[in-house]
Amino acid sequence: MGFHLPLIFALLSLAAVALANHAAQPAPQLYWNSVLPNTQMPRAISELLHPDSTNEEKSTNTMNAVGNGKPTDHKGKPENTVLLRVPFFYRVYDHPTDNQLHYKNVAIFFLEKDMRSGTTMNFQFPRNSNTATFLPRESAQSIPFSSNKLSEIFNHFSVKPTSVEAETIKQTIEECEAPGIKGEEIYCATSLESMVDFSTSKLRTRNVQAISTEVLEKGATMSIHKYTTMPGLKKLAGDKVVVCHKQNYPYAVFYCHAIKPTAAYVLSLKGDDGVKVKAVAICHLDTSEWNPKHLAFQILKVKPGTIPICHFLPTDHIVWVPNHKTA
């Protein structure tokens, strides 16, 4: 039996290419592929693994963590940066703030019936300007993440304790350490690996979907527009979801919370500028534990615990749901 050298060389070349591609993938992506081989990675996550290839617009207001923990721009050069806070309200049961009151004319909160085809509402799909990327879990675990270790954290990232960056870091950690409401499970994921582990453990399955809102046109503006709901509303599986919200931090951190009872939807929107959006909406079915003075009740003219309240997710947040059909 003879050797087919051309075939052998071809197979060896393919194997070498496969190994090279495997080695080129970041550790968080390798973990995703091993734990969730049948789950498509949403853009909100993939762009934090390969920012240079997926982000067309680079904000100078970033603080990206690299191996030495120094603040850098996307080219790896040190720069003076500011972490900007986006006024989106993932702690939806809290009392209203000045930022919330500023958005009273925007459909931050709405009712389930408002998602029917043909409904119009004003909305802005805000995006966190901080494009900090994921660290491998081992690297993230080596850096303190605690309000008791703030001086050590500031020193690690060469941040002055009196700076805006230091205040933002402090606020993010304090929000992560704050208790949730009854029935809510909170976890701040400091790596993609830990986000995957938390989400799959709370859903009790690795057969999951991870979905984020996507503005489908490149170069679309993030200003407020009137959006019309298009046909094709889809309710996602399960009555318990895990929602993870991008935070402002020197590396990618997500505030995740498991909420029940909750319904998640995917719907198509078309803006008055022609831009199409694949939007993810979360509907909280039990609001009895929310602050009675919350902005949602002011906008919708309803009382806590009387009717489900919904809101869209920004483009850099992720909802995790079981991957099976509902009745």
Rank of each mutant, 00 (worst) to 15 (best):
T205H: 06
M195A: 13
W320Y: 08
T60W: 14
A27Y: 06
N128P: 13
L84T: 12
L7W: 10
S163A: 05
L203C: 11
K70W: 07
A16N: 02
R127D: 15
P322I: 03
S191L: 09
G180Y: 00
E177G: 03
L135W: 08
L192K: 04
D272K: 07
F88E: 09
M121D: 05
L192V: 08
V159K: 02
P51Y: 02
A27R: 13
G69L: 03
S142R: 14
W320C: 03
V275H: 02
S129L: 15
F154E: 05
T228M: 05
F109A: 13
Q298E: 12
S13R: 12
V196G: 08
E79M: 14
V266W: 06
A264T: 04
K160Y: 08
I108M: 15
A18N: 06
I211M: 07
F89L: 04
S199V: 04
S59Y: 09
E289V: 06
Y255T: 04
I299F: 04
P6H: 05
A189E: 10
P51R: 04
L7H: 12
A166P: 00
A210C: 08
R137T: 13
Q40P: 06
I282N: 01
G2T: 13
H22N: 10
A10M: 09
N68K: 10
N33W: 09
Q100F: 09
K58E: 11
A20N: 08
I143F: 08
K325W: 12
E112L: 13
A44Q: 01
G180C: 00
T190N: 12
P308C: 05
Y251E: 00
P42F: 00
A16H: 04
H74C: 12
S163Q: 06
A252P: 00
V196Q: 08
V241Q: 14
E57V: 10
I211V: 14
Q25V: 06
P322M: 04
T120F: 09
P26Q: 02
I299T: 08
Q29I: 09
F198W: 05
Q209M: 11
F125H: 02
